[in-house]
Structure formats: structure tokens, C-alpha cells
Design a protein around this nucleic acid. Structure first.
Lengths: 216, 216
DNA sequence: TTAAAAAAGGGGATATTTCCCCTTGTCCTA
DNA sequence: TAGGACAAGGGGAAATATCCCCTTTTTTAA
């Protein structure tokens, strides 16, 4: 049953300047009103829990936030409020995170350099049709299903080894640190070189950083 | 000569959603108008060059932009239009970049999670008094002058070598790539190990990534 | 203008990394 | 229940990386 009142939108974003400004932009579209704004996932979830029956037509959810980030928030929504429609907003086009947001139920994923026109279109589309994906995102989804086989999964010990390999320790020192024989460490190394298609420890370090196994 | 017209502001930010929204926020403050918006430093500079006599009271300059970023833009302004008052806007509080923006003439540095109230205050302050620094930034400036001695500056050749060292090439290969003797490369390596207080090539890679000499 | 750095390169030694092929248990499953 | 995958570990060799001490020429600074 469609009432003639405006669509109710919630913004969750820690960039106050952005979130407050965005509210004005959305208002200027006419058919929408921003009923609440929150600065991280935690306070948003607190609100949802206490206002379980509030009418919410759309949630604009930032991905990078302190306290409770967009992905964790999305996972919570998937479990407790899968009915809420969410468009994820982010500055980065990291495939990993985009896929994760969508598999956890986001109905759209927009970069913050999206034009206001596309943004308006996306909002309308999600509220009416239920989803909106840009070419960027569609491409990633296709890319994903086509390469979902050869996925690399590392074991806990390997992760620990990689973290150590990203320091100035020698393998001998790493072995003693991990209470394993240097030869075992050598085995880990060789198997990882093979698995990750790299040839040197430098390659391992670059891989680890790129895949966020270690942070710099 | 102060006219009774509104203060003229330019926004330079690649996040269209943000920049268009911000314009609305600024308008809502009353005393200001956004006369132009640009999505990177390049198009902004093009505009400035062609409108040398335009009245501009304040520039809001994003730091992270494609094509020509905030810092490069700031450096250009320092050389050609040091009269323009600039507030840098950014999501990151990286000390390095903040210091650089300020030493290149930025009159203020605000994070995008600033509240609209502080933002308004900053705008007023910069236009009237000429600068506005938050505690975060002041702290960094103090921190800076207290540790300005032991600064490391790398030469162009060293930078090139470091970039190569962050690949799976051997030093011999790097030497041939750079048209230098392997022994010279060894010299670069040793001098860098000394200068950067590291002991292995792994340490060099970590340094390079942390200091944004290479990207992953 | 003279002394001190710096840039390019070398000799030679030791330590570390990388590679390939092997053994011994254990656990799982077809 | 035999075969296979896998974790831990070993031998041994070649390739790389690291270190220390040296020469020559050019630049820079006092």
C-alpha cells in the first residue's frame, strides 16, 4: 500500500560533512526525506533495535566507518533485518569488499564520485525495483562467478608464517619463533611460492600487503 | 573593499555526490555562494588560468583526487596564485600529507568527518582571519618542528632503485635494468640500509610501501 | 681553493634464500 | 584396507643477498 507520504531514508556515514550535505541533496530531489542520520554502524543498529517498527524505505550505508564498519553492519542486517533495502556507498572500488557487501544483501553499490543524477536514479531503482547495479559492479559479479574456482585459501599456520616473512627476520629466526624446524618453514615457503605463483620472498611480502594479510 | 555580496567559494572534489551536496550545505549557511565546482585539480587550474581576475574568497580543495591531486594543485597555487585562500579537505589524517599541504600554503585542513558547525566556523575564520587549524593539525605542526632535524631525503636514483627492489627482480637484474654495475647497486642498497636503519631487502620493501614510494 | 662528500665501481667472504628430491608418520576416504 | 593427501622434517647444492674494506673521479661546501 503506497501512501502519498515521502520515501523515508536513513544515512549511515561517519563523514558528517558528507552526510549532512547529502541530506540536503536528497531533499532537493523532492520525493524523499532523510528521517535519521548515524555516524557508524553501532548507533544505527541500536536505533533499529529500539525502533523495530519504524518505516524505512532505504538505507544509505557507508563502507568505511569507525566503531562498526559497513560490512559488519551489513552482516547484522542480513541476519536480523533482511527486509531493509541498502545501498552501499564507498570511495573505493575494491572488488573484495564490493562482492562481500552484495553477497551480504546490499541492493546497490555506489562510489562517492557518482553523479547526483545517477545517484537519484539508483535510489529510485532500488526503492521500486529492488536493486541497482552499475556496470562496474555487474562486471565484478560476472568476473567473480567466472573465477570462483581457483580460489586460494591459506591455512592458519601459513598466515602466521606470512606475517613473519613480512619482517626482517630470517627464516631460521621465524622457525624458532614458530617452534618449527627451519626445514618445515622452508616447506611452507616453497608451497606458498607455488600456490601464489611467486618466486621470491619479496613477492610474498607484496602479496601479503595487497591481500591485507599484513598492514603497513 | 568589501561589497555586500556573498563570499565566493570554489569546491574541487572528485566525489560528485559530496561536492554537489556540500554546495547545498554551504548555501544553507547564508553568507556564501559556490561559484564553481571542479572534479580534479587539472580542470580547476585550467579555470583559474582563464579567469585570472575572478573574485574568489575561498577554495575547498580535496586531497585525494584523480588526474591532478590536492597536493600537486596546492603546489601550483603556491607558485602562481598564493593569494587564494585554500582549506584542504580529506578523509585521512596522514601527518605527512597534512604537513605538506600546509607548508604549501593551505590555510586550513579539515577531515571530512568534521561537523557542519566546525566547518562553518573554519570557513568564516579563514576568510576573516586568514587561517584555521584544528587541534589535530596544530599538534602535528608542533610535533613537526620538534623533529625536523633527522629528515631523510632520497635522491632520484635511489627512488628508482627502491621501486625496482620492490619487485621480484634480483639485484643483478636491477643493475642491468638501470644500466649500472651490480656493485653500484650494492652500494645503493648498503647506503639505504644504513640511512633507513634497516637490515634486509624486506625492510626496504616495507619502508617503500609505508612511505608511498611504491604502491600495492 | 682545498678538503670533504658523493657517485660509480671492485674484491672477496659469509649468510640467507631458493630449489629439488627424499623420509616418516597421520589421518581420511573410496 | 590400500592408496592418497598432508604435515613435519632432512640433505645438499646453487643462486642471491649482505657485509666490509678498497680505488677513482666528480661535486660540493667551507
Amino acid at each position: 500500500m503506497k501512501t502519498n507520504s515521502k520515501n523515508k531514508i536513513i544515512i549511515v556515514d561517519d563523514h558528517l560533512l558528507f552526510s549532512q550535505s547529502l541530506e540536503l541533496l536528497i531533499k532537493s530531489f523532492g520525493d524523499y526525506e532523510v528521517i535519521e542520520r548515524f555516524e557508524n554502524g553501532k548507533v544505527f543498529i541500536d536505533y533499529i533495535e529500539e525502533n523495530n517498527d519504524a518505516e524505512i524505505n532505504l538505507v544509505l550505508l557507508d563502507v568505511n566507518m569507525p566503531v562498526l564498519d559497513g560490512l559488519s553492519t551489513m552482516k547484522w542486517l542480513k541476519d536480523f533485518r533482511p527486509d531493509l533495502k541498502v545501498i552501499a556507498l564507498s570511495v573505493n572500488d575494491d572488488e573484495e569488499i564490493i562482492i562481500k557487501m552484495i553477497t551480504n544483501g546490499a541492493k546497490g553499490y555506489l562510489l562517492k564520485d557518482t553523479s547526483p543524477e545517477i545517484f537519484k536514479e539508483a535510489i529510485e531503482c532500488v526503492i521500486e525495483k529492488g536493486f541497482y547495479f552499475t556496470e562496474l559492479v555487474s562486471g565484478m559479479l560476472i568476473n567473480k562467478v567466472n573465477s570462483d574456482n581457483k580460489k586460494i585459501n591459506l591455512k592458519e599456520k601459513e598466515i602466521v608464517f606470512i606475517k613473519h616473512a613480512c619482517t626482517e627476520m630470517t627464516y631460521k629466526e621465524i622457525a624458532s619463533e614458530m617452534c618449527l624446524s627451519p626445514k618445515t618453514i622452508d616447506g611452507y615457503r616453497e608451497s606458498l611460492f607455488d600456490k601464489l605463483e611467486i618466486k621470491t620472498r619479496i613477492g610474498l611480502v607484496l602479496y601479503a600487503i595487497k591481500h591485507k594479510i599484513v598492514f603497513v
